[in-house]
């Protein structure tokens, strides 16, 4: 009898958990459907493709972006991947540049108070300059180029990484360093096995913080000074007064961002910092 009672209690507990999840997905789906419905109603009311194209028109454009345009021989369907990859590669390379610049600066700032005093203001200033400034600056210096956007993305993400790394280096557990010294570990071992793992979550936090910023700046530089990329496509279609295509590209960009953030970044983080899950619970 007792067993039966426990079983039914467990079953209802499980049922609640599953029900909760189902309700959450339902709310999410309702939100999206509602959003598209309101959009569609507004577009019917506005009744102008140039001002607010309907979801259907935008969907047609998305289809053309992926599958090519039969009325335009220049668009054979490769347009999405070409532009998309151009943007992704730029942002990733920009991030590499940002981490490569920000990490050593962060280490200097975290380890040595003279360097901290010296670098604090420049890094803070670099962090508070609007993305647009970088976009315009690199365009002036490099013209329409591949290097420009990469550098702009690097510059905009660098301060976030530097400040986070400095924070992480300053917070390395002195007890662990002492322990390592007492057991005769070399400076190199201590750096590799104590300092780097301590700082890694902070680098990652910096990457997460500057990630959306880097994308925005990347798009901005493409709008001004690129011949390929999602930002470039948005500008080109804007100049052609092709609003459905502008919105289609923006939509694809947002979806890609969400996927990257939700699935790729979060997964990498979970895998890298598996031990932290236990830390929090313990």
């Amino acid at each position: 009898m007792a067993g039966v009672l426990v079983d039914s209690a467990e079953a209802s507990a499980l049922g609640t958990a599953a029900g909760l999840r189902r309700r959450r997905y339902l709310a999410l789906a309702t939100g999206w459907v509602g959003f598209v419905a309101i959009w569609w109603l507004l577009s019917v009311w506005v009744n102008s493709d140039a001002r607010l194209p309907s979801p259907g028109r935008v969907w047609d454009e998305v289809w053309i972006i992926f599958n090519g345009d039969p009325t335009n021989s220049r668009n054979d369907g490769g347009i999405f991947w070409n532009n998309f990859l151009a943007s992704v590669i730029r942002v990733l390379l920009g991030f590499v540049v940002g981490v490569a610049m920000g990490t050593p600066l962060g280490f200097l700032m975290g380890r040595n108070r003279y360097w901290r005093s010296f670098l604090k203001s420049p890094v803070m200033i670099a962090g508070s300059i609007p993305g647009l400034t970088y976009a315009v600056m690199v365009l002036v210096v490099f013209g329409i180029s591949f290097v420009g956007p990469v550098l702009a993305i690097g510059l905009i993400s660098m301060p976030y990484i530097a400040i986070n790394v400095a924070e992480g280096v300053g917070g390395v557990d002195k007890g662990l360093l002492n322990m390592s010294r007492s057991f005769g570990r070399s400076e190199k071992q201590m750096f590799r096995d104590v300092v780097v793992p301590s700082v890694l979550p902070f680098i990652f936090a910096g990457v997460r913080l500057s990630f959306s910023l880097a994308w925005k700046v990347g798009q901005l530089t493409e709008v001004f000074g690129a011949s390929q990329g999602i930002g470039f496509q948005i500008r080109r279609n804007f100049q052609l007064f092709n609003m459905p295509a502008v919105i289609a590209w923006i939509g694809l960009f947002i979806i890609f961002m969400l996927v990257l953030e939700r699935f790729v970044l979060v997964r990498i983080e979970r895998k890298l910092f598996r031990w932290r899950q236990w830390e929090r619970e313990g």
Binding site: G175, L176, N178, M179, S180, S182, F183, G184, R185, D193, V194, P197, F273, W275, R276, E279
Partner: peptide, 23 residues
């Protein structure tokens, strides 16, 4: 010399065995 501290001072990102191997 070997040491035992007031707190365990284990590397939280390494498994127990990897902590043993660290020294």
């Amino acid at each position: 010399l070997g040491y035992v501290f007031q707190d365990a001072r284990l590397l939280p990102w390494r498994s127990v065995m990897d902590n043993m191997m660290y020294v």
